[in-house]
Amino acid sequence: MSDISRADVEHLAKLAHISMTEHELEKMAGELAVIVDSVKTVADAVSSAAVSGDVPATSHPLPLTNVFREDVVGEVFTAEQSLSNAPDAEDGRFKVPAILDEESEQGPALRGPAAGEGSER
């Protein structure tokens, strides 16, 4: 049985911004372990004699590559259209709550490329 702990589930839930109760965390840990075990069947197949050699993981099942677009401008929204579903707006921009890290005492979460977040190495 795969070892998916309650802490693993809690961590994932936090990353995915999913709020879960104590009960759900416990229950999900057990269920996820079963799911991971099922998927593990693939690993067993690879290591068995039935499938030999190096089998790369499949990320894209379709035999398609290089689907490109011409660098030509298409339709755009007006600012009014862009903001038409926004819960709140100001000066032609989306208005969002003040951004603080989940652990607010650590200060703001300066993430994303705008804050220059680099790649993982």
């Binding site: 677009r69 660098d71 030509v72 401008v73 298409g74 339709e75 755009v76 929204f77 007006t78 600012a79 862009s82 903001l83 000066d91 032609g92 921009r93 989306f94």
Partner: peptide
């Protein structure tokens, strides 16, 4: 400095009015 964005045909331009160089993909 492409004419359009990486994954959509919205213009890649600097200095225009906010939220006018966007399409559903950018949003």
């Amino acid at each position: 400095n492409t004419v359009t964005k990486m994954f959509s045909s919205a213009p890649n331009a600097f200095g225009d009015d906010p939220n006018t160089n966007v399409n559903p993909v950018c949003l």
